[in-house]
Design a protein around this nucleic acid. Structure first.
Length: 379
RNA sequence: GAGGGCGUAGCUCAGUAGGUUAGAGCGACAGUUUGUGGCACUGUAGGCCGUGGGUUCGAGACCCAUCGUUCUCC
């Protein structure tokens, strides 16, 4: 089987946006793309069938930290990897768990060899190192796997971010080495993406991009953003990273974001996105539509019998009404969370597909400029 | 008919020996959520304390009457 390939179909003449095709052993992904987050072997509240048929998801995420704790690598290996375990035959990307170790686990201790932390589930102690995180990701078997990094909070001091970035770079070399000396377990190629860090310091960001670029990976990720900075800062540093990362490889902006964040970042040259927002916020009643943002719990929707989103082709968004969805949330019914998640993911996937169409058509900037006020409007 | 209990926020109830602006939970209304600990978090509104008298400097608390409700007995 073959390593990931990226083919650039169209590069915009008016900005940095581009349309491409990623080929993996589990299928083809047209970019720009949004990847639904399925942390622990499930995109919460959504079935794999719905992901394919209703949402049109081409690739989903898993998380090394969560899958390592539950169900554990023994079960995953016995099942033949995550694809078989969860019944998903399209591409999967796993985050390394670096972010969770820093955001979730307690009593973590960062050492050169790795991070000692306590499980958020039972308090048990574990060590994550670049080596065993690669081993765990071998057991999971995702098509794209992420380097083990440290994601420092914003704000952090220059000195802290510089040291953290150096550690992330050292760890990256160890990730590549470990991957080179271990075989894939399930017969398909796993592709390692390094992650740019450097916080909100331009010289560090640039240095990190140059270091990452020198590794010649098949794809590169921008980390350490969407962790508390302003939107302007996020765009500024995304632009800086895109300018300093190779054109010929896909660029993945981790953890971003709102629909309008994604349209702006595409214009800056980003190809891949993931975010918990459509699912987590959906479960809490925030509904993203092609007409604007809805808080479906609000009283104003209780007799609104228009479709959830008349503007996207997803059948479920036409079949169910806003008034019904509000009722489901008011009654705390499980179907409410399911429908909101499906609507939000369908909308996100529809949005990036439209973005691709307009990049190819050559009018992306005009389309984006008209689209952002519409989709960010509070209804 | 006789005796007892209970009437405080939309609902279920707290309100300590009578002492500033009467509280909680749920519900309602609204806001937050960016490489996910699923049903979370934050805030706001809402009370002539059943009604009418009385005692007192001061009553949601005490007294009388009355209305409603509920239980027991005949």
């Amino acid at each position: 089987m073959a390593a990931l390939q990226f083919e650039l179909a169209v590069e915009s003449q008016e900005g940095a946006s581009r349309a491409g095709t990623i080929t993996t052993d589990h299928g083809v992904i047209q970019t720009p793309i949004f990847m639904p987050v399925g942390t622990i072997g499930t995109v919460k509240a959504v079935t794999q069938q719905q992901l394919k048929q209703d949402i049109n998801a081409k690739i989903i995420l898993g998380n090394t930290y969560h899958l390592y704790l539950r169900p554990g690598t023994e079960v995953l290996e016995a099942a033949g990897g995550l694809h078989k375990f969860m019944g998903w035959d399209r591409p999967i990307l796993t985050d390394s768990g670096g972010y969770q170790v820093f955001s979730l686990a307690s009593n973590r201790k960062i050492k050169p060899e790795g991070v000692v932390f306590q499980s958020h589930i039972d308090g048990s102690k574990h060590l994550f190192s670049p080596e065993n995180v690669m081993d765990i990701q071998r057991s999971i078997g995702a098509d794209i796997i992420m380097a083990f990094d440290e994601c420092p909070p914003i704000p952090s001091t220059y000195e802290y971010v510089r040291k953290s970035m150096d550690l992330t770079h050292t760890w990256l070399d160890r990730c590549f080495n470990r991957l080179a000396e271990t075989p894939d377990l399930y017969g398909h190629t796993q592709n390692l993406f390094p992650i740019v860090q450097g916080g909100l310091y331009k010289d560090l960001r640039k240095a990190s991009c140059e270091y990452i670029a020198s590794k010649n990976a098949v794809g590169n990720a921008i980390g350490g953003l969407s962790v508390g900075e302003t939107e302007e800062e996020m765009y500024e540093f995304t632009a800086l990273c895109c300018e300093n990362l190779p054109k010929k490889n896909p660029r993945y902006l981790m953890g971003v974001g709102t629909p309008w964040n994604i349209l702006e970042a595409i214009d800056l040259g980003v190809d891949m996105f993931d975010c918990v927002m459509p699912t987590r916020n959906g479960r809490n009643g925030m509904v993203f539509t092609s007409q604007g943002v809805i808080n479906i719990k609000n009283k104003k929707w209780y007799k609104d019998f228009t479709p959830i989103d008349p503007g996207i082709p997803n059948e479920m968004s036409q079949y169910y009404t806003k008034g019904y969805l509000r009722h489901l949330f008011a009654a705390d019914e499980i179907l409410g969370m399911q429908l909101a998640s499906i609507q939000n993911l369908s909308f996100y996937l529809w949005l990036v597909e439209q973005a691709r169409i307009h990049i190819i058509a050559g009018d992306y900037k005009a389309w984006k400029t008209a689209m952002i006020p519409q989709i960010s409007k509070r209804l």
